[in-house]
Design a protein around this nucleic acid. Structure first.
Length: 598
RNA sequence: CGGGGCGUGGCCCAGUGGUAGGGUGCCUGCUUUGGGAGCAGGAGAUCGGCGGUUCGAGUCCGCCCGCCCCGACCA
């Protein structure tokens, strides 16, 4: 490709409030934004995405995946039958076709896969199968942000496993676990697998693959000692030992104006962790339908883990209750506790560590008053207990007791063990060896292509621009012709021809502009290898080779194409080496996570 | 949806009630060619939209739309 012909110019400036790596993608001419969370890919972006697709196809094919293509627009009926029509909020785009039939724009394809399986899979002989597709999804996200990290329309590789039983599902899940590490490694991206919430997918077990980055929107807890890794939404922690001090008599104390745990703790001279913090929510059991009031009680130094509270209450959503709603159940905002409540109208969920702690401070459910020597079981009321307080850095690891690290991460992919939710709802059943009808056991696995590119850009750039791995870069070589002396032009064209003929994807800067512009553009676009032909190099009968992040060196003009290919070969070998290193630990990790291979 | 910010040539921005500007990019010519060169000339704007105040609105007021950032949500 000649730069003079390329659609998509480089920009000198981009909006400064964007993520830096995203500014680079914009400035380098990979993409252009059309609306909030909606982007066009320019040729460079398409070519990079094409490289990603190739990796995805190879790795999915390698675990037995078969590519399919499923419709984006689907009848609502499918979603009504699976229950997600009712469960998912406006993130799911709905509309009526001209006949007034309810339709959805798919945000993911479990329903359609189950529907396909319902007719394509009839016997145990038709299982197991893995199908996948690479296509766009639309989710009307409440807040698109951070460039390609969180968009509304996005390309996704989604695969689905169909199995006879949970053992089969676990095997398919494990294959994906492995493939997802390989895909990331081949993209030059270090990722960690963390336990995660199943969210709207349903099912039990799920992992997210996280690129660790301070820019990340997810909070993770990692154990450096034993490898435990979990999203904060599901992270556990070792329970503290029970306190054995005697329970003292309950005592009301005046705390006028102290409506936050911090103020109460300060006023009563106790540590935050010794305040039982009570937060009121209204559980929505169906979309937009208010259910009961839920009071969450956690140690004062912790946030409520909403994902877990949602799971425990079976709510599709939780919103913070208003003071009026709280008053109806006998709770006083700012002075709340699980004491003296209208019993039937409210559910109390408490952090399981609280029952072990003695003589805490809690609200008195009376304006301006708190309680000392509050003992949850004796003085309050609990309907459910679970690890409701979110884990934080320094908490003891649930598996080895060592201190957990708190890190931020960007989710590049996820895997879910769905089970039979969709197959049962949509009639995906098969006949087993004994002639019994059984539901297909499903798994669901996603990778966001744009997000992957964004993570790669975030991992591989410097002040001047992108510095993409050879596996992801739109072109392997940036050929820069300096000046327009006939000899230079002739040499550059010749080399371009040789490279193209050899199958080396080359971006040839043939423009009649100053060398500075060409070098700056070349650095910005981030191809892994730059080749310069100039009067200066020709004087030495040479061209110059420079890795994007390396030093320049001369190679003889004669046979330059060969030298370029050799250097590219070296880059690929180094990437292979990197993949090998990254994958070395994965087998062991898989064994630890899923048990011995089998 | 709550909070904050912004909307002015393609891009990045200044403009403080009184003639719409700068940088960059673009076009033409000359000159230049190893790190975003120089000179000269030129094109390009219903100042996000609608309404209001005013002799006069990019500027003040109201409503709406859009985008960005922080939170509740997720590939």
């Amino acid at each position: 490709m000649r730069v003079s012909q390329l659609f998509g110019a480089t920009l000198r400036a981009a909006p400064s409030d964007e993520l830096f790596s995203h500014q680079l993608l914009l400035r380098a001419g990979y993409l252009q934004q059309l609306a909030a969370g909606i982007f066009s890919l320019l040729p460079l972006g398409v070519r990079s995405q094409e490289r990603i697709r190739r990796i995805l196809r190879e790795e999915l094919d390698a675990i037995g995946g078969q590519e399919v293509s499923m419709p984006v627009v689907q009848p609502a009926d499918l979603w009504q039958r699976s229950g997600r029509w009712q469960q998912v909020d406006e993130t799911l785009v709905r509309f009526q076709d001209r006949r007034g039939r309810e339709m959805v724009v798919a945000m993911t394809h479990e329903e359609v896969v189950a529907d396909l399986a319902a007719s394509q899979v009839t016997s145990y002989r038709d299982l197991p199968r893995i199908v996948y597709q690479i296509q766009t999804k639309f989710r009307d996200e409440p807040r698109p942000r951070a460039g390609l990290i969180r968009t509304r329309e996005f390309w996704m590789k989604d695969s689905y496993s169909l199995d006879r039983d949970p053992e089969g599902l676990r095997a398919a899940y494990r294959k994906h676990f492995h493939a997802y590490f390989r895909i990331a490694a081949r993209s030059g991206l270090p990722v960690a697998a963390v336990l995660s919430d199943v969210g709207m997918m349903g099912g039990k077990v799920a992992h997210e693959f996280m690129y660790l980055s301070d820019q990340g929107e997810d909070t993770l807890l990692l154990c450096p000692r034993c490898g435990y890794a979990a999203n904060q939404e599901v992270a556990e922690r070792l329970e503290p030992p029970p306190e054995d001090s005697p329970e003292l008599p309950l005592q009301e104390v005046a705390t006028p104006g102290c409506t936050t745990v911090a103020e109460v703790a300060a006023a009563l001279q106790v540590e935050l962790s010794r305040v039982a913090k009570t937060v009121g929510y209204v559980a929505e059991m169906e979309r937009g339908e208010d259910g009961r009031v839920v009071l969450a009680v956690v140690p004062g130094d912790r946030e409520v883990n909403l994902a877990r509270l949602r799971q425990a209450t079976g709510a599709v959503d939780l919103r913070v209750a208003t003071a009026e709603e709280l008053a109806e159940v006998g709770a006083v905002a700012g002075y709340m506790s699980p004491r003296g409540l209208e019993r039937a109208a409210v559910t109390v969920v408490a952090d399981s560590s609280l029952r072990r702690r003695r003589n805490l401070v809690a609200g008195a459910n009376r304006e301006g008053w708190h309680l000392r020597n509050f003992n949850l079981v004796r003085d309050g009321r609990v309907d459910q207990e679970l690890a409701l307080g979110a884990a934080v850095g320094g908490d003891p690891c649930p598996s080895c007791g060592g201190p957990l690290d708190l890190r931020r991460g960007i989710e590049y992919g996820n895997i879910f063990q769905l089970g039979t939710r969709y197959s049962e709802a949509l009639g995906a059943v098969y006949t087993d060896e004994e002639g019994r009808q059984r539901p297909v056991v499903m798994g669901s696995y996603g990778i966001g292509l744009g997000r992957l590119l964004a993570c790669v850009a975030e991992e591989h750039h410097d002040e001047r621009g992108l510095a993409l791995p050879i596996s992801i870069a739109p072109f392997q070589v940036a050929l820069v012709q300096v000046g327009s002396d006939p000899e230079v032009v002739e040499a550059a064209r010749g080399l371009y021809r040789d490279l193209e003929r050899a199958g080396v994807e080359t971006l040839y800067d043939d423009r009649d502009v100053s060398a500075g512009i060409k070098f700056a553009d070349s650095d910005l676009r981030g191809m892994p290898l730059r080749v310069t032909v100039s009067p200066r190099t020709l004087q030495r009968e040479a061209v110059e080779l420079k890795r994007r992040l390396g030093e320049a060196r001369d190679v003889p003009l004669a046979g330059a194409a060969g030298a370029v290919q050799e250097e590219l070969g070296a880059l690929w070998s180094e990437l292979d080496l990197y993949v090998g290193e990254r994958m070395a630990g994965v087998e062991e990790l898989a064994a630890r996570t899923f048990g011995p291979a089998g």
